[in-house]
Design a protein around this nucleic acid. Structure first.
Lengths: 145, 145
DNA sequence: GGCAAATGTAACTGATTTGGTTACAGTTCT
DNA sequence: AGAACTGTAACCAAATCAGTTACATTTGCC
């Protein structure tokens, strides 16, 4: 990616749903969320579809359809969201096979793999420590709502 | 990009240079490095140019030209390399401005900004803890050289 | 002085990705 | 039966990326 904003959009959508439910709303529609995020409803549906497959949200079909959270906002971390979206590792190894005949080329990938694994672990720990409820609370504090 | 392999290529190049210098070589050329990485010399030159601007390596021009490390491999961390390459944050905020009229939309970006800053800090700490000398040592151990 | 070896960088290409959009089939409430 | 939605395919335009060609520039060496 250039930089990845999927997590931002998905978290925005879930925070909107959490507030909606708190205010007594039932199912949120892609049109409502798209309006808040300022994008196309199909973009939202694509994200929601991925999160529904991971069990983060529940789908209702037919008239009055939409989605609602499958768990409490305290029980959904940003890592859960990122994982549901099929997050990729922060750093990738070579696209092409490096040279077989060079000792550096032969050994560099096994040498970097554990480093990149530690980076991903660090990201996971950090995201797991922030939950949807935290984000919603901070969001409403900032926006004065 | 999809996943970012710039750091991998650049680290590969610097590890090659470190070994080259240890074996008595002087300046490394883009052609030599490109052969080990299995890519085009211009791709290497572009990376090296960025790292030279950040003072990680030194350029020699004219015949016998190339680059050499400006510091000892023990003094170059993966974070130094990543920074020299103009690393982007792992997660980005919305590309488009979200709706002004929605409290969630107004507050979500200030709420996520410190979370993403902590993620970037975690990445920085992890990468700063691994140095070029470590990578070269592990690389040679693995490749049996 | 002039040749030759290399970097630095612009410019172009093809492949891939992304967000946005239209379209429509499927589901289910009333 | 009709209407309100999701789910998903298909297509488009913009952006990005690796690879490539080309060439101006630098500078050691004869």
């Amino acid at each position: 990616m250039s930089a990845n904003s999927k997590l931002t959009i998905a978290t925005h959508a879930l925070a909107w749903m959490a507030l909606n439910e708190r205010l007594g709303g039932k199912f949120a529609t892609s049109e409502q969320i798209a309006k808040s995020v300022a994008t196309n409803p199909v973009v939202i549906r694509r994200l929601m579809s991925e999160m529904a497959k991971s069990g983060l949200i529940e789908t209702q079909r037919g008239p009055g359809a939409g989605w609602r959270l499958a768990r409490a906002p305290e029980d959904i971390s940003l890592w859960d969201i990122n994982e549901a979206l099929g997050a990729e590792a922060a750093f990738a190894l070579h696209r092409n096979e490096p040279s077989e005949s060079c000792p550096v080329a032969r050994g560099i990938r096994p040498a970097l793999t554990p480093v990149y694994a530690r980076v991903d672990d660090a990201i996971r720990r950090e995201l797991a420590g922030t939950r949807l409820a935290d984000v919603l609370r901070d969001t409403l504090t900032v926006s004065g709502a």
